[in-house]
């Protein structure tokens, strides 16, 4: 464990908690893409099946349980409890265009042709594009609530910190996982546009609105 991975995990945890609390306290999921949240639930489910097969540490196991629990709770709040506030018209990204190619790629390019490894690879590839429905929805509505931008910032920062963690681990441990690194770079690049808007607008107290 190094400081970058720790802060990456804490940023990821913050994002998940911010979103869950925002929906719970405002009793509304307006502006939130339910499709992205379903993709994240799939990412955690397919990645953390090793909860059943191996124990790495209390930290590792508890964080995985929290991620899985919160992501399913968030999906439940969006599609069940507060479904009346779900903006289905703007959450129109065709996720099948993500899942099918990602699934195919996971079968073709992986470290080991075993079920757990292919599911892990699928979750790594899927996570790198899972935020697209959310970013697409913001581009369609032309704006985002400030709390949603904080959620997105933490979500994007987490994998950016992981990139630094992988540089650290390569330098000090000789460890590197090309699949995770390439997917992590793609994932972080997808946030660059948002990062620019967040820093130039939200951090200056303005609302995040895209030029319609």
């Amino acid at each position: 464990m190094n400081i970058f991975r720790l802060f990456g995990d804490l940023s990821h945890l913050a994002a998940i908690i911010i979103l869950l609390l925002k929906i719970w306290k405002s009793r509304s999921c307006a502006g939130i893409s339910g499709k992205s949240q379903i993709l994240f639930a799939i990412v955690f489910t397919t990645r953390y099946l090793d909860l059943l097969t191996s124990f790495i540490s209390l930290y590792n196991t508890s964080m995985k349980m929290i991620y899985i629990g919160c992501s399913y709770a968030t999906v439940y709040l969006i599609y069940a409890k507060f479904r009346a506030t779900y903006d289905g018209n703007h959450d129109s990204f065709r996720v099948e265009f993500l899942i099918v190619p990602v699934g195919g790629l996971a079968v073709l390019i992986n470290h080991d042709f075993s079920l757990l490894e292919i599911l892990w690879t699928f979750s790594i590839y899927l996570e790198s594009v899972a935020i697209l429905p959310q970013l697409f929805m913001i581009s369609k509505t032309g704006e985002a609530e400030t709390i949603t931008t904080h959620y997105l910032f933490c979500q994007g920062l987490y994998r950016a910190l992981y990139l630094i963690n992988w540089i650290w681990r390569f330098y000090f441990e000789g460890f590197f996982d090309m699949i995770a690194i390439v997917a992590g770079v793609v994932q972080t690049i997808l946030y660059c546009d948002f990062f620019y808007l967040y820093v130039t607008k939200v951090l200056k107290g303005k609302k995040l609105s895209l030029p319609a």
């Binding site: 991975r5 790495i56 470290h111 080991d112 757990l116 892990w120 992981y162």
Partner: peptide, 10 residues
Amino acid sequence: KKEAAMKDEL
């Protein structure tokens, strides 16, 4: 056959 790398990251 490459050993599936131990997954210690989240």
